[in-house]
Amino acid sequence: MADLSKMRQEYTSKGLEIEDLDKNPFKQFETWFNNALEAKLIEPNAFTLSTVGLDLKPSQRTVLLKMYDNTGFRFFSNYNSKKSEQIEQNPYVSAHFAWLGLERQVRIEGTIKKISKGESLKYFLSRPRGSQIGAWVSHQSQVVNSRTVLETKFDEMRKKFAKGEVPFPSFWGGYEIVPTYFEFWQGGLNRLHDRFVYELIDNNWEIYRLEP
């Protein structure tokens, strides 16, 4: 057994108080997200998406946040993927942002829904051409014999769509996570971390502190 008990990172931030927080969790997220951008953290828009299907077995994967506002958080995917299958079976999801360079984490819980085809198309047209072709190539989450198969399919699609725009695939598009719960976590000395929750109760965001 690998013994990792000696691995220890002491958190050094000055801590977090409720007075430091915006009353709107979306604005608080924006502040911390901008801090992550300013700190030049790697892929600050990457988050772990957790889904659970009818078999009650949780699945996790890293996806990239592409848009957010005061209603929700959006990312894009193949609608035939395992994540999409589980989303169809159970619309409750969890998202986790780990900005460890700032000794911070954000956890979001809520429901998820597809965005409109028009909104998905708008984003699809903004993607690099290679990414557009890649959406046609990958049967996401399906077994494939080798990378060569994917590269061959990519070349075939590249030739097929050589003239004009790459068409929008009907099996691809965006999702929006609509939060009902946020947790903002700030590392603290002696493992006394600061954790604040925003919970949507009767259409109002209630804020409270959790023990570490």
Rank of each mutant, 00 (worst) to 15 (best):
P44V: 03
D20F: 02
E30W: 00
R74S: 06
I177T: 05
W136F: 04
R158S: 15
I42L: 14
A36W: 00
V197Y: 02
S13T: 14
T51N: 05
G15I: 02
P179V: 09
N35C: 01
V149Y: 15
F29S: 01
A95F: 04
F33P: 00
M1I: 14
E109S: 12
F196I: 04
E109Y: 11
D155Y: 05
R8H: 15
F76Q: 02
D3M: 14
G173E: 05
P91I: 01
Q60W: 06
R195S: 11
N145C: 09
T111R: 07
V137Q: 05
F196A: 04
G15C: 04
A98V: 12
I177H: 08
K160M: 15
P212G: 14
N34T: 12
S146D: 11
S94I: 02
Y11S: 04
Y198L: 10
R127N: 04
L54N: 15
L37Q: 05
S77W: 01
Q89R: 08
G174P: 01
G110D: 08
Q186Y: 03
V106K: 01
S94D: 09
L102H: 02
E176N: 08
L121K: 12
K23P: 00
Q140V: 06
N78W: 07
R104L: 02
H139L: 07
D22E: 09
N80E: 13
N78C: 08
K117V: 10
E30T: 05
F124T: 01
G188A: 09
R104W: 00
E156K: 15
G173M: 08
T180L: 10
K122M: 08
H193I: 07
N34F: 10
R147F: 13
I133L: 13
E109V: 03
P58L: 11
E10F: 05
V93W: 01
S94T: 08
P169Q: 15
Q86D: 14
N80K: 12
N203K: 15
S77L: 07
Y79E: 02
K40N: 11
F196V: 04
Y123C: 03
E199F: 09
I177M: 15
Y11Q: 04
R129M: 09
S146V: 10
T180W: 03
L100Q: 09
A36Y: 00
K66T: 09
F184I: 05
T180E: 15
Y175L: 07
R74P: 00
P25N: 08
D155E: 15
L41R: 01
P169Y: 15
S94P: 10
D194R: 03
A162C: 13
